[in-house]
C-alpha cells in the first residue's frame, strides 16, 4: 500500500508539471521526408511530433494521435493530418541521430515556430546529424569494477551567470564489469565525470542492493570523491573529449580513488594520558556523520582496528 501512496504523490507531482494538451484538428497537413545529413539516405523509424513550445521535450509517442505525431516509413516519409492552423513547433527524433527541430540552424539548437494556415499543406525536409558515443570503464584503486558508478557527460557552460559552470548532458550507470556507454550525444566538446553509485558493492551497501535491510548502520567504507577524466577533481584540469558526428570514443576509463580523504568533522592523534605518567594507549577519535537518523563512520574505524 505504501507503493500506492507513493504513486499518488508521484502522479500528482508529475501532473502539476504536465503541459496542457496539444490542440486537435482543423484540416492542415504537414508532410515531409527525413534524411541522414551526410549521406542523404532516407531515415525510417524517425518520430515526428508537434510540440507545444519547449525544444527537446517529447511526450510519449502515440500513433493514434495522427495530428500530433507520426513515424517515418521506409522511405523516410511522414504525414501529419488534421493539424490545427496556427503556430507549432515540430520536433524530430530518431535513435542514433541528434534530435532536431523545424527551423533549427545547427544540430541541437532551438528552432523556429512553423506557421500553418487553415487547409494548408506544408512540405518539409529534415536532415539529421548522427549522434556520438563515449564508452569506457570505471574501476577502483585495485582495478576492480566500480559497479553502479554514476557516469555523466558534461559541458562547460559559456554563460557566466549560470548557477553551475557545468551542464550535465547525459548520465548512465556502470554495470558489474564497470563498463558504461553514454550514447547519442550531440557532437561537441565534453568532459566525463564519474562518482561512486549507491550500488558500488553489495558488501558496502547491502540495503541499496537488496532493498530495506534490517540494519542501516553500514559504514560507507569507501568514500570516493567524484573525478573527471582522466583523474582529476578539478574540471579545469579535465581532458576535453571532442565528438564528431557519428563518433564512438572508447577507452574513457576512470580510476576512482579514495586517497582523497573522507570529509572528517573531527580527528585527534594519540596524546599523553594526563597525570598517569605513562604513555597513552593509542586512541583514535573517528569522524562520524548523521544521515536519516543513522550514523556513518569513516573508513578510519576499519583501518584503525586492522592496525592493531
Amino acid at each position: 500500500m505504501l507503493v500506492i501512496e507513493f504513486l499518488v504523490v508521484t502522479l500528482v507531482a508529475v501532473l502539476q508539471s504536465l503541459p496542457a494538451q496539444a490542440p486537435i484538428s482543423d484540416g492542415s497537413t504537414i508532410r515531409g521526408v527525413v534524411v541522414d545529413a551526410r549521406t542523404g539516405e532516407a531515415l525510417p523509424q524517425a518520430v515526428v511530433q508537434l510540440a507545444d513550445r519547449e525544444f527537446g521535450t517529447m511526450s510519449r509517442f502515440d500513433p493514434a494521435r495522427r495530428s500530433v505525431a507520426a513515424v517515418t516509413d521506409d522511405g523516410g516519409r511522414f504525414v501529419l493530418v488534421d493539424v490545427e492552423a496556427g503556430e507549432h513547433h515540430l520536433v524530430i527524433a530518431r535513435n542514433g541521430y541528434v534530435r532536431t527541430e523545424y527551423g533549427s540552424l545547427a544540430p541541437g539548437q532551438p528552432g523556429t515556430p512553423l506557421m500553418l494556415s487553415p487547409g494548408e499543406t506544408l512540405d518539409v525536409t529534415f536532415q539529421m546529424q548522427r549522434a556520438a558515443r563515449i564508452a569506457g570503464r570505471i574501476y577502483d584503486e585495485q582495478g576492480r569494477p566500480m559497479v553502479g558508478a554514476r557516469v555523466t557527460a558534461v559541458q562547460v557552460s559559456g554563460d557566466p551567470d549560470a548557477r553551475s559552470p557545468l551542464n550535465i548532458l547525459a548520465s548512465t550507470k556502470a554495470n558489474d564489469l564497470g563498463e558504461y556507454r553514454l550514447f547519442w550525444l550531440t557532437p561537441g566538446d565534453y568532459l566525463v565525470s564519474a562518482r561512486r553509485g549507491a550500488m558500488a558493492s553489495v558488501a558496502d551497501d547491502p540495503q541499496s542492493f537488496f532493498g530495506p535491510a534490517r540494519s542501516r548502520n553500514i559504514p560507507p567504507n569507501r568514500d570516493y570523491p567524484p573525478l573527471f577524466f582522466p583523474g582529476t577533481t578539478d574540471y579545469s584540469d579535465a581532458r576535453t573529449i571532442t565528438l564528431g558526428a557519428g563518433d564512438t570514443v572508447t577507452g574513457i576509463d576512470i580510476r576512482l580513488s579514495r586517497s582523497v580523504a573522507f570529509p572528517e568533522i573531527g580527528a585527534a592523534s594519540p596524546t599523553a594520558n594526563p597525570g598517569s605518567g605513562k604513555p597513552a594507549p593509542p586512541v583514535a577519535v573517528v569522524a562520524g556523520r548523521r544521515e536519516n537518523d543513522a550514523l556513518y563512520f569513516s573508513d578510519t574505524t576499519t583501518r584503525a582496528r586492522k592496525a592493531r
Partner: peptide, 16 residues
C-alpha cells in the same frame, strides 16, 4: 517503469 532509477540520454526517440 515506475520507481526504477535510470540514466538520462539526449536524443533518444520516444518509444511506443
Amino acid at each position: 517503469p515506475v520507481g526504477v532509477n535510470t540514466g538520462t540520454y539526449p536524443n533518444v526517440a520516444p518509444v511506443n
